[in-house]
Amino acid sequence: MNSPSTPPSDQGEGLTTPVSTHYGMADFARVRKFDAHVHLNVDDPALVQLALEDGFELMTINVDAPDFTPIAGQRAIAIAMADAYPGEVHWSTSFSMSGFGQPGWTERVTEDLATADAEGARAVKFWKDIGMGAEDPEGHLVMLDHPELMAVAEQARALGLALIGHQGEPHNCWLPLEEMTTENDRRYFSRRPQYHMYLHPELPGHDDLIAMRDRFLTALPGLRFVGAHLGSLEHDVDKLGAFLDRFPDATVDMSSRMSQLQFQSLQDRERVRDFFIRYQDRVLYGTDLSFHPSADPVKFCRAAHGIWTSDWRYLATDESQRVNALDADVPGLALPRDVIDKIYYGNAVRVFELADSADDDSAASVGESVPRR
């Protein structure tokens, strides 16, 4: 099989077809890919089957979100899917902040983390309720650099698990609806005012949460950290680059933040393109596709395929497409093939230590329910 970045070049005896520096839409299904941020919250293989058809492996991330399947159920589904599709489905464990600060909480969480590692987890998720809702027994907001959470992170580092951190929200979250840069953020926060921080000035600001995350990472050198949702620095690729420069063990996933990148590339396409080329080893492709029990599998998979192909068109090709979140036509970045191969696959293999999966040629190529938040 040809490698992803080496397309066939012969076109008749003695003739050679010039090799494009970037992929096209025709390459989508055959190139090995990895969606590093999905949520399989239902025991249904529909999304996994679609992923196989479209050339993806999946990282399903457990999280103690109020509108998700209970966390124990998510874990059971993740283990079952990983057992049924070894090499194609991987998973991240998580924990509940319920009971935080009570005797035995830290011991229970660290022991469970060791169990999850033995069961095949590749990472642990620290969710946004840390710093944005969870409280200690005295009613104080729990911040990421609390000693008990540091102990959990130390356990993750000792076990060799990556830590996926969702701290903060998009910068739009601290703006009034009419000043937000993307329609998808306006829609999301108008429907979920409890997460719209502009309405909650008593809670930490965006800069406070980013500083909290950075203190946490400074205290944990060597921790493999994945900043979910572009590390909540999606609004400014220069600030995101500065974060990656400061923390060499950190990477970020792109989940639910494509329209913010596209907003910036409408203003300065080369600035965004240059960011991806410079930090090609530090970014993971991801979507935040969330497959819930209430979803119609056929409609969900149709929407998921549309998201995967739309993102590929933007990142990998030079084609323009209409982006409804911006009400604008957005040209593709046409990133070089080797850059796409890293962002879409190689970086995830390294960060989640999936070398065995990468060596398995059998997975290399194939022939309202999809929230992007």
Rank of each mutant, 00 (worst) to 15 (best):
N2H: 15
T6F: 10
G12Y: 01
P18C: 00
S20V: 01
M25G: 12
A26K: 14
D27P: 12
R30N: 12
R30P: 13
D35F: 10
P45C: 05
V48N: 12
L50T: 05
I61M: 03
A65G: 04
D67L: 13
F68K: 07
F68G: 04
R75W: 05
A80T: 10
P86R: 03
G87L: 05
V89Y: 04
R108G: 08
T110Y: 05
D112I: 00
L113F: 01
A114W: 01
T115S: 10
R122P: 02
I130S: 00
A134M: 02
P137V: 00
M143S: 10
D145L: 04
P147S: 00
M150C: 09
E154G: 10
A156Q: 03
R157E: 03
A158W: 00
L159T: 06
G160I: 03
L163D: 00
L163V: 13
G168W: 01
E169N: 08
H171G: 04
T181P: 06
N184A: 15
P193H: 05
Q194R: 14
M197P: 02
H200P: 08
E202N: 12
G205P: 05
H206R: 07
H206A: 11
D207N: 13
I210P: 03
M212P: 04
R215W: 01
L217W: 07
L220R: 11
G222F: 02
R224A: 02
F225N: 05
H229S: 08
H229T: 11
G231V: 02
L233G: 08
D236A: 01
L244T: 06
D249W: 05
T251Q: 04
D253R: 06
R257F: 07
F263Q: 15
Q267W: 13
R271Q: 12
Q280E: 10
G286C: 03
F291Y: 14
C301T: 12
I307D: 14
D311S: 14
W312R: 07
R313Y: 02
R313P: 08
Y314Q: 10
S320L: 07
N324D: 15
P331E: 01
G332D: 09
D341L: 09
Y345D: 03
R350V: 00
E353D: 10
V366N: 14
E368G: 07
R373I: 10
